[in-house]
Amino acid sequence: MGNTPSAEAKAGWTLVSPPAIYVLLMLAAPLLLVFGLSFAGLEGGAKVSLPLQEGQDLHFTLSNYAKLFCWSASDTCSSTDVRMAQATATAMGRSLLVAALVTLTTVLLAYPVAYYVSFHVHPSKKSLWLFLITIPFWTSYVIRVALWRTILGYDGAVDAALGAVGIIDQPLNLLQYGTLAIVITLSHAYAPFAVLPIFVSLEKVDRSLLEAGQDLGESRWTTFLRVTLPLSMAGVVAAVLIVFIPTVGDYVTPELIGSGKVPMIANFIETQMWKLRNQAMGSTLAVSSMLIVAVVATLFVLANRRFLGGRK
């Protein structure tokens, strides 16, 4: 029993070293490489395509980042660069907008579900309900996204249902409204992600506080607003982050639902990294988008920090 601090630390480190080394090699090293490549350039501005050819030497440059700010043609910005910068900015803006809408939708729709399971379901049945909510999340993402094509598309389930009850006489074909279709699909895909953290935070709410609230003359509704909701905000913040961050970087949905016509930032990163084999520019896009997401997420957490005070 190593219970002196050093013996215990040694045992702990020995055990954790294989997974730690794995993460170091497979996550930390690649991310660092991407960060480095985002500042890399070749003689004459040729694209950086790995693995490097004989005689190619990388140098430090900010030109990759500068290209993202080519709003008008100039000495350093060709007209292609300008079109590229505008398209990238549009895609980034669309990604943020889509992610914000998806986050808003999922969290608002998920809260009552989490509340119901936490407050109205018998404790012995709670894990069954959670299981039912999480199952769809574990089935193939590609299949679920692809299915929305058939649901939202021309003569799909939505058109069939609305047509049957006589609300519409022409098929809506919601799929043609690219961004809207992407928002619907992603909201559906990330729904369980929003339910779980809110549920966990609601579970932690001391039930006697609610009785105290009502005992002090609050109605059910005002007790909810003044006691339950603030106490569960930590879960709401977690839900927002856990939905927002992956949706900003979603790739499959714009490809399958938007048919590539309404690309998001991940599709741009893929184009540079994979199709164009321009890994320096791809890295620049990856780093910039992660930076933007990190800033947005930090601002959001800061704006809500009064709710997070009591949390470790």
């Binding site: 497979m26 996550l27 090293a29 690649p30 991310l31 490489l33 991407v34 490549l37 790995l50 982050l241 856990i242 961050i245 992956p246 900003v248 970087g249 979603d250 790739y251 991940a266 990163i269 893929e270 990294m273 994979w274 890994q279 791809g282 890295s283 990856a286 992660m290």
Partner: peptide, 14 residues
């Protein structure tokens, strides 16, 4: 919490 595209591309580069 990392978008999968970032993970995939970072690994690809490596």
């Amino acid at each position: 919490v990392l978008p999968e595209m970032i993970v995939a591309m970072a690994l690809l580069v490596l």
